[in-house]
């Protein structure tokens, strides 16, 4: 138990910084909530809160799987396009007269296939996921337009559209689904062997591989999971707005990535926790909702999302740089240690 390691433990660089970052996001969430409630008419009433929560459904669903991927130092930018393709498939099959109960599993299969293609390209061909998923972002969205054109399919059974918009008390049903899945993902990431492997892969892929962890297999299935979660989001989106269109969810991938990074997950992998991401999803929801209520134009909303995205990537690095400046990078020992007896 040397002096050095004790001092280092007190500093606890990893745990300390993460905890502080999550607290910061939680504080920001509370502050923005209070500011919005105090300054924006109608923000605080019950139906708006329900709507605010409901409106985070798709982003939260996609952010859950995205968190796992980003912790392994990969990314999936095709999620919103997968969502759109799911909507297009749903609309096309519904128009063709299939039963909705038969269509929904097929939609999840579409999501799984979208994710599997991403996963194969990344793990088998060794391509960077950023490039692969920018490509499939265009590919899946294009496919959605091919299927539905600019047509909108709207006549879904009220049983489903109703379920997607009603609530148990103040909690909308889709949010209950999100909560259950979030609990599942949180346990997986933070308490299972798979979760440990995910962190190890993100921190040092080579060491993880040398320790017998099946790096490629895990990454592949995380891409599949990302596709499936995106198609669940697609189903939620379609039923919530009672409208399946090829451009459903256009551009949402940026909000999802913003939420994950703002939630404290490192874009370089290996760091981050799910509660922070959930807080960030809510924070983005509150800001968006308040700005819409205050009649701020849509362009400004995009600007704010972009600003938060850049901030969330920059801020942890700035914090780290500040910490480094405060402490010398080399431990200074004015007196040499006494040698230990051989």
């Amino acid at each position: 138990m040397t002096k050095d390691s004790a001092a280092a433990a007190r500093r606890s660089p990893l745990g300390g910084r993460l905890a502080r970052w999550e607290v910061l996001i939680a504080v920001l969430l509370v502050v923005s909530w209070m500011v919005a409630a105090g300054t924006v008419d109608g923000f605080g009433n019950g139906s708006n809160i329900s709507f605010l929560l409901l409106d985070t459904t798709e982003i939260a669903l996609m952010a859950l799987a995205m968190t796992l991927l980003v912790v392994t130092a990969e990314i999936d930018l095709s999620v919103a396009s997968t969502l759109g393709l799911t909507c297009a498939v749903l609309g096309t099959l519904w128009n063709a007269g299939l039963a909705i109960e038969a269509i929904m599993p097929l939609c999840l299969l579409v999501g799984a296939l979208c994710g599997a293609l991403n996963g194969l390209l990344v793990t088998r061909l060794g391509l960077p996921s950023l490039a692969v998923t920018i490509g499939t972002l265009a590919l899946y969205r294009g496919l959605a337009y091919v299927l539905l054109g600019d047509q909108a399919v709207a006549d879904f059974p009220p049983a489903y559209t109703g379920l997607a918009t009603s609530s148990a008390g103040p909690i909308p049903y889709p949010i209950i689904l999100v909560a259950v899945l979030a609990a599942l993902v949180a346990v997986t990431l933070h308490a299972t062997p798979l979760g440990r492997s995910i962190y190890a892969i993100g921190s040092n892929e080579e060491a993880a591989y040398f320790a017998g962890i099946r790096v490629k297999r895990i990454k592949f299935w995380l891409f599949v999971a990302s596709g499936v979660f995106a198609s669940v989001a697609g189903l939620a989106y379609t039923f919530r707005f009672a409208s399946a269109r090829g451009d459903n969810g256009f551009g949402l991938e940026l909000v999802v990535v913003a939420a994950v990074l703002l939630g404290g997950v490192s874009i370089f992998g290996g760091r981050g926790a799910l509660p922070g991401v959930l807080a960030a999803v809510l924070l983005l929801g509150v800001v968006r909702n308040a700005l819409i209520l205050a009649d701020v134009p849509n362009e400004v909303l995009n600007f704010v999302t972009g600003l938060l995205l850049v901030t969330s990537v920059l801020a942890p690095n700035l914090l780290a740089a500040l910490q480094r400046r405060r402490q010398p990078s080399y431990p200074l020992h004015p007196e040499p240690e006494r040698s230990s007896a051989p």
């Binding site: 660089p13 990893l14 440990r196 962190y199 190890a200 921190s203 040092n204 080579e206 060491a207 993880a208 040398f210 290996g270 760091r271």
Partner: peptide, 13 residues
């Protein structure tokens, strides 16, 4: 450092 250990993970992990 590169192959044997995940440097920013704990000893027990």
């Amino acid at each position: 450092r590169q192959q044997g250990l995940v440097m920013d993970m704990s000893i027990e992990r």
